[in-house]
Design a protein around this nucleic acid. Structure first.
Lengths: 141, 141
DNA sequence: TATTGTTATACTCTATAACTATA
DNA sequence: TATAGTTATAGAGTATAACAATA
């Protein structure tokens, strides 16, 4: 079995994915971190996320790194962000309907672009690949 | 099929791999870019690589980004780097025996670390996963 | 004039630490 | 005193452009 290093192959493919997604994000007028935040807020149950630090951790970012992103998403009416009455240090975060709409539209376009990359795999291999990747990615969390 | 975005899963797994490999690289006293360069020079046929720009492209780097790396690898006697007599603008690049030894030792350790990550996959899935990843990664080149 | 390699510079991204407000 | 959020600053990493040498 002679193959490139696992890390090298992952980096290469991830880089291509980023390049493919970049124009889609621009077209939907959202940054990569902005999209990551919308995804992080949209994925879970319908309850608001309870702290910015938890959101940052869930998307693999530093808590200081997402603040300007949150500022802008809030300014554009895509998220709500209000102090928790029970502990006013905490900010409750949730998508607005507009934020949900933007997330859905963007994610649909991104999934379609992923299809063009995955299309070269035979359906059976593709199923195993995605399942294995998700399992490894979950374990990496 | 409800799963995270392909790009998000790849980034997450790649980040874990980098974290796992970092201590190994330090132990072998080589930087990530240094290791990438050694790998790029060691992979192909035995002939020297003909330009630094070609090497940079093959490992996904900018030609200006690898120069300090090449400087250090040469200073440490891990690579040879000499003007091509036929076109003195060009630098012929190749591993020295010491560079080959370091590459082999480091790669062996990195492969072993990858095993611990891949071990959670059933052997059949693992085989398909690696094959599919290599195919996608090659196509991304 | 075109190409390879190099250097310099500016820019972005990221990490760290200090600060505020609440508890 | 401890925690959530914010701001400021310094450092690393990266991209761009200008330059030197050779063709």
């Amino acid at each position: 079995m002679n193959r490139p290093d696992l890390g090298a192959m992952l980096m290469r493919l991830a880089r291509q994915l980023l390049a493919v997604e970049q124009p889609i994000l621009e077209k939907h007028d959202i940054s990569m971190w902005g999209y990551a935040v919308l995804t992080g807020l949209g994925d879970g149950p319908d309850e608001p996320m309870r702290t910015q630090a938890a959101l940052a951790r869930s998307i693999g970012a530093d808590k200081t790194r997402i603040i300007t992103t949150l500022d802008e998403l809030q300014r554009r009416g895509l998220i709500e962000r209000e102090p928790d009455p029970a502990d006013r240090r905490v900010r409750l975060l949730r998508l607005t309907p507009a934020g949900r709409d933007l997330l859905t539209a963007t994610q649909t376009a991104i999934r379609a672009a992923e299809e063009t990359v995955l299309a070269q795999l035979p359906p059976a291999d593709r199923r195993v690949f995605l399942q294995a990747l998700q399992s490894l990615s979950d374990a990496a969390g």
